[in-house]
Design a protein around this nucleic acid. Structure first.
Lengths: 127, 127
DNA sequence: AATCAAAGGTTACAGCTGTAGTCTATTATA
DNA sequence: TATAATAGACTACAGCTGTAACCTTTGATT
C-alpha cells in the first residue's frame, strides 16, 4: 500500500515520537525533540513534509491540530530493512547476520551456533 | 578515517563492481553496468563523484585511466549497518535480528535458539 | 486593552542525488 | 586519412533533504 513513502533520517526522528505518542500537538513534538536542537521552523517543516507524504495525518477537531502516524513502525522498518539489505548486502540476510555476529561479543561457541542457524536461514527474502 | 564518506544508492552499484573488479577502465564499468540502463554520462558522473568523495582513486599510468576503490566494502558495510540500525532500530541489534528471524523461515525450535542467542547479544553496538 | 508566544502557512536556500547533455582531444577503424 | 567511438572534463537541472526565516492570526498574560 504505502510502499512508495520514503522517510528521511530527520523525519524518522519525528516518526519515532509519533509512533510512541500518537495524537500530539506540535508543541508536544517540539518539546519532545528539543534535544535535537532543531528550530521551531525545522520541526514544523518536517511534520508538514510527513503530512504531504501521507505518513502523518492531522486531526483538526480542536483548534490546535493533533498529529498521528498513518503508517506503522512495523511496516516502515520492514521496508527500510529490505532496501538496506538489498543495497548493502546484495539481498543476503545471512551475510548481514554473519557480519553482526562478527561484530558482537558472543563466545566462540555461541557464534558457531548462530552461524549454523544462519546457514539454515539461507538467502530468502531476495528483492 | 574515512568515516565521513557517504555513498548514495546509485554509487553503491558502482562501488560493488569496483570492489569485485579493482583497476578497471570506464569502459569496463560501463559494460558491467549496462543492465542498469544508465547512460554513459550517468556512469561517468557517478564515478567522478566517487572520486571527489575519495571513495575511488584513479590510476593514470596508462592513457586510459583505471579506477580502484579507496575504501573497503567491509568498512562501508559496517558504517552503513551501524547508521541503519541507529536510525531504524534505535541502535538495537537484537531488535533487528528479532525482526529478521520473524521474517525468515526458521522452524519454531530454530527461532527459539536464535532468539536465545540474541538475548545474549544484548544491545552492544550502541551509537 | 496591549503584548507576547505559539500555530499554521508560505518561502528560502544550499547540498546531495538521479540522470543526462555538450565539448574537445584522442584512438580505432573503414 | 576521414570518420566514428570513446575518454575525460564540465555543465545542467529537478527533486529530496537539512535547516530555517517570515507573516498572519489567535490565544494567553500583564
Amino acid at each position: 500500500m504505502n510502499n512508495e513513502i520514503n522517510i528521511s533520517e530527520s523525519e524518522w526522528t519525528v516518526m519515532e515520537y509519533l509512533w510512541n505518542n500518537p495524537m500530539v500537538t506540535i508543541t508536544e513534538i517540539r518539546k519532545a525533540l528539543s534535544s535535537t536542537g532543531w528550530s521551531d521552523s525545522t520541526i514544523k517543516t518536517l511534520v508538514r513534509r510527513l503530512v504531504s507524504k501521507n505518513a502523518v495525518a492531522i486531526n483538526d477537531e480542536a483548534a490546535t491540530f493533533r498529529y498521528y502516524p498513518l503508517i506503522s513502525q512495523q511496516e516502515c522498518r520492514l521496508k527500510e530493512t529490505k532496501s538496506f539489505i538489498n543495497r548493502v548486502y546484495d539481498g543476503s540476510v545471512s551475510m548481514l547476520v554473519t557480519n553482526l555476529a562478527a561484530d558482537s561479543n558472543l563466545t566462540d561457541k555461541e557464534t558457531e551456533e548462530l552461524l549454523a542457524l544462519i546457514e539454515k536461514m539461507g538467502n530468502e527474502q531476495e528483492k
